[in-house]
Design a protein around this nucleic acid. Structure first.
Lengths: 193, 193
DNA sequence: ACTTAATGTGTACGATTGTACACATGTTGT
DNA sequence: ACAACATGTGTACAATCGTACACATTAAGT
């Protein structure tokens, strides 16, 4: 399963990978592929499942490290960036899959993102940071947060991991996005019809 | 050039298309491909250029139709959705290209988005809606707006164009995203260090 | 220890791929 | 009308593709 990720990490698009290519990278004969996966879509779906684990690990680390609320955004963005770099190929796969050609993979990734957003909503509730928001509004806001971060992901994956200047720019920009969203959230409810 | 778009519209990913496939769709013999494009990447780049035209048409229509500032968001989202549906394949190509395998295409699409964001910033300035914001902050905010809309695009392209209920949900959600961002923008500058 | 299941190998085949080359057809400018 | 050019065609070939099948090896359960 790491073979397709390696190839994706080298710049290939998952949709353009073939069975032979993957098995070659895995150092295995093509027909062995069918011992584990029915086809490339099936492989992709299993990768989505593993992606879920990666995201959960990231969430856990964020929860452990974010102690004071005032550093919440900075810390979270930092953790996100370091995980994105440590699992570069996984996140590349995720970014590709969002507009990929398999509807099932697309839906799988989208579902992981929804889960992530709902967990974020729980955490914010728990930290008593959003008492003035309805559940629906909070969910909407967390969705926007997750989307913004996911989009920053594509920025991040576009630059070399050791180009510290660019990474820092992306970190700052993402942080400002989230600050802006939370400023909006603070002043939100008086705006509802 | 419409052949690859047709294929993308049928659910294929641009990165997985081959020369023969494209020429077959175009009703032309494979070797004719080389009369127009050096390779698939070249084709993709030319599509990005045409995508620019589509986006500019959309901007123009938005500028003509948005008369009162209070309807700005609703109108713009509406225009965006109708254009996205009228040029479904083009926008699918755009969504795919953002995480595609050609760095050049990626950068091309990103550049179109930056241009779009900067035009939006100009318009907001012209409408005197953002006098309290610095240029840098305004640019950041417009960037976030464009990204959010672009992400909604992937939602929109995932549902059938005549599933009116789903489309309406996406329209409402996108509108709320933008409202939230603008609420944040209104209360922004006191937050700067 | 012996059976059973899981996984990898080797060979094979027809379909499809990218691309080279020579040739045909249509279009444009003079 | 005729040359120059743009575009499409036909043929060809080696490389690669997905996948079927029979067989070998390793791991697990009894």
């Amino acid at each position: 399963m790491s073979a397709p990720l390696t190839l994706v990490g080298k710049g290939r698009h998952f949709a353009s990978l073939g069975i032979r290519e993957v098995t070659r990278q895995a150092g295995v004969v093509p027909t062995s592929f069918y011992r584990h996966f029915r086809n490339m879509d099936d492989l992709g779906l299993q990768l989505v499942d593993e992606l879920g684990l990666v995201l959960r690990r990231m969430m856990r680390e964020a929860r452990e490290n974010v102690l004071q609320a005032d550093k919440l955004i900075d810390e979270s963005v930092g953790i996100f960036i370091s995980h994105a770099q440590a699992n570069r190929s996984f996140f590349l796969f995720m970014a590709q899959g969002l507009a990929g050609e398999s509807r099932a993979i697309q839906e799988g990734i989208r579902s992981e993102m929804r889960y992530f957003a709902s967990e974020l909503a729980n955490d914010l509730r728990r930290l008593k940071l959003v008492d003035h928001l309805s559940d629906g509004d909070l969910e909407m806001i967390c969705d926007l947060v997750v989307r913004s971060v996911a989009f920053s992901l594509t920025d991040l994956l576009g630059v070399s991991a050791d180009d510290e200047y660019q990474v820092e720019q992306i970190r700052k920009r993402t942080t400002r996005f989230l600050q802006l969203i939370f400023v909006g959230a603070e002043h939100w409810d008086n705006r509802r019809p």
